[in-house]
């Protein structure tokens, strides 16, 4: 029994499926004689997945030309395109050198005196508020499904079949300037164009210099309710973004 077990443990070529053996042979040719057994499994996995994705793509091309079966040209095209997109190499040294020459031509700028963290302009930071409030326009009024209670806060939230926008009435009563940095709404009526992803939270909850003041509403319930709704909308928006992104 002991002998049998030993034989099993021995990494004999017979126990490894043919694909694994091919990969081992390839590695040997590349000069790799010793490796973790897991490596072979992983490389096999890669080979399968790569082949599948290339063939999938080839089938798409075949379908596109209304052919019934795949042919060599489809596979060739698929290979060529995947090669261009996924097996890229860094740009040639000469091009990099040229870029470097241009870039390094400008002298280093003196450091500006600054208070607090030195960060790039807001639009490049993650601390930036990255949702936009919309001016409530006449076009939306008909479609408004519900208006948040406590409309006196000036915040109206409308929902639409696909997209939800947070609207601000023309006179921003309760929202102080610092609260939500509203990029002057250049009303983007096109619903398919969503300029920015909605992540609301950071600015309001964390940063020191931001705060929400509801001037006209003494009822704190209202505030929290609005907040909740904004949150839920935000989640919704994100979900939608995800779907679009895929």
């Amino acid at each position: 029994m002991n002998v049998q077990e030993k034989e099993k443990l021995k990494p004999g070529m017979k126990n490894i499926p043919k694909d694994g053996q091919v990969i081992m042979a390839m590695m040997k040719e590349m000069g790799i004689n010793e490796c973790d057994p897991k490596t072979i499994v992983q490389l096999c996995e890669f080979v399968y997945r790569y082949a599948t994705s290339v063939l999938d793509e080839a089938r798409m091309y075949a379908n596109n030309t209304k052919k019934k079966n795949l042919d060599v040209d489809d596979v060739k095209l698929a290979l060529q395109l995947t090669n261009e997109s996924s097996f890229t190499t860094p740009p040639p040294r000469e091009i990099i050198l040229e870029c470097a020459h241009v870039k390094n031509y400008t002298p280093l700028q003196p450091v500006k005196p600054h208070c607090g963290l030195r960060l790039p302009p807001d639009r490049y930071c993650l601390s930036q508020c990255n949702y936009a409030l919309k001016q409530s326009g006449a076009t939306y009024k008909k479609k408004t499904n519900y208006v948040v209670t406590g409309a006196s806060t000036g915040l109206k939230i409308t929902t639409k079949p696909n997209v939800s926008y947070i609207k601000r009435s023309s006179t921003p009563v309760g929202v102080t300037k610092q609260t939500v940095a509203v990029p002057k709404p250049k009303i983007t009526t096109n619903l398919n164009m969503q300029p920015q992803k909605t992540v609301l939270k950071p600015k309001i909850h964390i940063t020191q210099n931001t705060q929400i003041q509801m001037a006209h509403s003494n009822n704190s319930n209202n505030v929290s309710k609005v907040m909740e709704e904004i949150e839920s909308l935000k989640r919704k928006r994100e979900d939608e973004d995800d779907i679009e992104g895929t």
């Binding site: 860094p90 740009p91 040294r93 990099i96 050198l97 870029c99 470097a100 870039k103 390094n104 280093l108 450091v111 500006k112 600054h114 963290l117 030195r118 960060l119 790039p120 302009p121 490049y124």
Partner: peptide, 28 residues
């Protein structure tokens, strides 16, 4: 304030925390 990075693209770069793009490209 400054920081430097090294990459597979055969360059090293010098950055400043308040600049979005690198200040220097060390290529060669």
């Amino acid at each position: 304030y400054y920081f430097a990075t090294a990459s597979h693209d055969r360059t090293a770069r010098l950055w400043a925390t308040d600049h979005y793009s690198p200040l220097r490209l060390f290529a060669g």
